[in-house]
Each structure stands twice: as C-alpha cells, then as structure tokens.
Amino acid sequence: MKTAETIGSAPQKWQAFFIKIADIYRFIVRIFKETFSFPIEIEELLKQCYIQGNRTLWLVSFASLLAGVVFTKQSRPSLIEFGAESWLPSLVSLAIVRGLGPLITALICAGKLGSSMGAELSSMNVTEQIDAMEASGTNPFKYLVTTRVLAITLMLPVLVVYSNMVALMGSYIAVHFFSQTTFKLFFSQAFESITFLDIFSTLIKPILYGFAIGVVSTYAGYYSSRATVGVGKAANQAVVVSMVMVFVIEFITIQVLGTMR
C-alpha cells in the first residue's frame, strides 16, 4: 500500500497530503471499530486514565491558578475605569469557563501527553515491540492506540472542570487581596452569570480536544518511520499538530455555540 511516508518527491506533495488524510480517516474509523469490539482492554484503559490524569495534574493546577490570578489582575483596572468592578467575578468566571480553562488544559495536554504518546509509540515501533505484540497474537492497535485515545478523551473533560475550579480559586485570591470580598459572595456572583450552554461547552470542547490530541499523537507514533530520528519527529508532530487542532476546534465550536446563544 502506498502511504504518505513512501512519497518523497516535491511534485507529489498534494498526492501525499490527500493520502495522509485518507490514512487518518481509516485510522479514526478503526479506533471506533476497536472501541466497540470485544475484548475491551479495561485494565489498560484505567491505567492510561490514571497516568494521563496524574501526569498533567500539577501542571494544570499551577497554570490554571496563575491564569486565574493574572486574568483577574489584568481585568480589574479596566473595569474600575468604567465603574464596573462588581462585575469582575462574572467576567472572570465566563472567560474561564467558556474559553480559558478548556484552552489552557488542552494546550498543556497537547504538549505533555501528546509528546509522550507520540514518542512512546514511536520508540516501541523502532524497537519492534509493536511487531512483538502482533506476533504473539495480541492486537497492538487496540491495546496501544484505542486505550490511549479513549483515556485522553475521557480525562480531558475531568481535567477541564478541575482547571476551571482552580482558576476561579486563583481569581478569588486576587479579588480578595484587593477588595476583601467574601468567598460566598465571589462564587455566587461568579456562578450567577454561567448558563447551561456554558457548562455544555466547557464539557463538550475538551472531549473534542482530547480525541483530536489522542488521534494525532497516536497516529504520529504508531506510523512513525523505523529510525531513531522518527521518535523525535513523531513527538514533534504530535505536539505541533495537536496544538493547531486545538485552535481549529476552538474556532469551530465558538462559531457553532455562537449561533446557539
């Protein structure tokens, strides 16, 4: 079979591009097929959920806390200028729930988890570990790819909810520092302006981000070239393409959700 990797000459770039799109389409179809076929690799799925959640927890906590503090500190002077300081909790909570929380978490996961998935699968490919699994009668695609894609798709919404809470806490700390607002008042104002659609978008977007990061990273690793340079290339591709995909999905979902508001 001709794959994008086998076409090297410059005039055939477009052909290679469309072959790659077809490859990725087949890859995604296979993920769905394997997800809903027996046996389910539940043990590996839970392990991956734990690893992926655990691996990014501290980074997400740190980045979200700082984002909450910084965003609040940056917004406050402008609101004071218009005499609207009391809107600060509402403004910050909307910004965090609608965009900042999901985006920060997705970008951290694209960097941290995407690179590790790409590099791990690629190095398994180089050292023939994937072939060894297949030769022993195990389905390596199901064991390695499906579980990782599912795990990040499931874990990203959880991390986003956590990130939103931590960012709001950061925001509260910043607000409390300036105006001695109580915890109860801050959060009642913050949640007042959040609608069902905001909650829906903060949960649906990370599912799409997670799936995209999972697909891009595992594809880059699973089909990497069988040379040491392929490991670095796979990790690099996983991060760069995942981040671009996150912004593309963000743009599309904003347009779609905008029409629903």
Binding site: E120, M124, T127, E128, Q129, D131, A132, M133, A135, S136
Partner: peptide, 11 residues
C-alpha cells in the same frame, strides 16, 4: 517469534 533486538516491552 524471537526478535533480533529481543523486542521486550520496556515499560
């Protein structure tokens, strides 16, 4: 199948 580089699962 015994692979040339052993192909042990290194994790």
């Amino acid at each position: 199948f015994s692979f040339q580089g052993s192909a042990l699962y290194d994790s």
